[in-house]
Design a protein around this nucleic acid. Structure first.
Length: 486
RNA sequence: GGCCCCGUCGUCUAGCGGCCUAGGACUCUGGCUUCUCAAGCCAGCUACGAGGGUUCGAAUCCCUUCGGGGCUACCA
């Protein structure tokens, strides 16, 4: 375990799809640990699986991390003295180490074909033996090798696992031991010479001087293999990273998060109107807690308070309801101009506004009315739409509530009452309508104002009525009420 | 199957031998407030998986068991 080395932490996703909440929780903890210790946060792309990683996913990963405010000190676009930070650009380095391990006798060429390996694994399973490489090519004679070569076989480079066991101290789980009987010889490089994760990750972590590896629990059982590579590199535990395996973030259905779930990609949350600071806040609470009862934490506070010791060892279920609650709190805490800036793209996207200065001015006046009524930015469109629609129409499910006799008379009285409102301000509008309808007709407020609300906004759910009417203006308000009268 | 990890309210968690007849948050239920919906405020429901130990004393330590998960690839 590293001692006295400056802390260097990396987040190293393999972008085979959009980054999901589990990835981001890991990124957040990596970032927080680096920031908390005053260390360096490195962003590295593990794109050794060229069949599955695409440039679009890589670009999306950068974008997502930046959007969340998890800025990296070294990595793509910012560079750093240990780059490049895309593994696809470091292939020669891995090849060099593979050759070195081969020369040292730590690794060997394995000529077994995929079909042969699969057949043998099948046999092992049938015989109820632990499946894994059986060591067939561990000590091939020169004749056997030339026979394979004559067949045109391209060998993989396979690491030799010596007898014994590997023990390491996981910062979250304590001491973990793996018997090598259950860690078979593993492949470092494919037949075409390209590296596998186990080789690339270990080499890069060392070369990039990473001191702490905080990653998903699914990689726990690959750690002895990684340590084996360190040993082949001639390193002692003080010289290679310490490990901390983070618990899983599980889906609502209690299954491991997967792209199947749909609502797991961070891009989805962004489009759904969740704030990056809310996502960070919520994710920080998944598998970690500040230790006291506080649940409202900013990114800065997370960085300040984060310690690996406080990370849970058990998995956490992702709860959209709680994220929503936190998101609502964060929205309510936003300054008006900030909220306006964040909401505008959604209004534009939803076709509610075109983005003119006049429209934005109206939106800005409306925002204070709805700020405490929304849990996501995306909800704003539906709430302010009535102020901008060209073709006004009452929602189908609200329509019956203005068609009855009582509502109709309310609307007629309202119409004549509003004629005489001199100053079209919400307080005056309210006073006039209260006098006429509540006092005059002895109606319950919810009945009287309910009908007007539907006539004016088109829905039985809306921002406060009188303010809405003021914003809409006398002309349109009254025209809509008139339009609702049969 | 084997190896490894994990197990406190429905969910996220506090708890690291006595402060726990288990605290907070979200959800849910009821109420207050109220021009709708929210927000806000108040109240309530609900948990230490089970069984053995250790100890004066266990949610906290040990063992077993049950349950969940991961890995078992020329994926990461």
């Amino acid at each position: 375990m590293p001692t006295n080395r400056p802390v260097r932490v990396r987040f190293a996703p393999s972008p085979t799809g959009d980054l999901h909440v589990g990835n981001i929780r890991t990124a957040l903890f990596d970032w927080a640990y680096a920031r908390h210790t005053g260390g360096t946060f490195i962003f590295r792309i593990e794109d050794t699986d060229t069949d599955r990683v695409t440039d679009e996913y890589i670009a999306a990963a950068l974008d997502t991390l930046r959007w969340l405010g998890l800025n990296w000190d070294e990595g793509p676009e910012v560079g750093g003295e240990y780059g490049p930070y895309l593994q696809s650009q470091r292939l020669d380095i891995y090849a060099e180490y593979a050759a070195k391990f081969l020369a040292q006798g730590d690794a060997y060429y394995c000529y077994c074909s995929a079909e042969e390996l699969e057949a043998r694994r099948e046999a092992q399973r049938a015989a109820n033996v632990a499946p894994g490489y059986d060591g067939k090519c561990r000590s091939l004679s020169a004749e056997e090798v030339s026979a394979f070569v004559a067949l045109g076989r391209k060998p993989v480079v396979r690491m030799r696992m010596p007898d014994g066991e590997t023990t390491f101290t996981d910062l979250i789980r304590g001491e973990v031991t793996f018997d090598h009987n259950f860690v078979p010889d593993f492949v470092l490089a494919r037949g075409d010479g390209s590296p596998l994760y186990t080789l690339a990750v270990a080499v890069d972590d060392v070369l990039m001087k990473v001191t702490h590896v905080l990653r998903g629990e699914d990689l726990l059982s690959s750690t002895p293999r990684q340590i084996r590579v360190y040993q082949a590199m001639g390193l002692t535990p003080e010289e290679y990273p310490a490990f901390a395996h983070l618990p899983f973030v599980m889906g609502q259905d209690n299954a491991k998060l997967s792209k199947r779930n749909g609502e797991v990609s961070i891009a989805w949350y962004r489009d759904a109107g969740y704030l990056p600071e809310a996502i960070c806040n919520y994710l920080a609470l998944l598998g970690w807690s500040p230790g006291d009862d506080r649940e409202d934490v900013s990114r800065e506070e997370i960085a300040e308070l984060f310690t690996v010791e406080r990370v849970h060892s058990s998995p956490a279920r992702f709860d959209m309801k709680k994220l929503e609650a936190i998101n609502g709190d964060k929205i309510r805490a936003l300054e008006l101009d900030d909220l306006l800036a964040r909401v505008t793209p959604f209004l534009h996207r939803d076709g509610v506004i075109e983005g003119t200065a006049a429209e934005l001015a109206v939106v800005k006046l409306t925002l204070p009315l709805i700020q405490e009524r929304i849990a996501t930015l995306a909800e704003v469109s539906a709430m302010v739409k009535f102020l901008f629609v060209k073709e006004f129409a009452i929602e189908a499910d609200s329509l019956p509530k203005v068609s009855d006799e009582q509502s109709q008379s309310v609307l007629q009285v309202a119409l004549s009452t509003l004629e005489s409102v001199a100053d079209w301000k919400h307080a005056d509008i309210e006073a006039a309508l209260r006098t006429a309808l509540i006092d005059g007709l002895a109606l319950k407020p919810r009945i009287a104002f309910g009908a007007i609300r539907i006539a004016v906004t088109g829905s039985h759910i809306s921002p406060p009525l009188f303010e809405s009417m003021e914003l809409l203006g006398r002309e349109r308000s009254m025209a809509r009420i008139a339009g609702a009268v049969k």
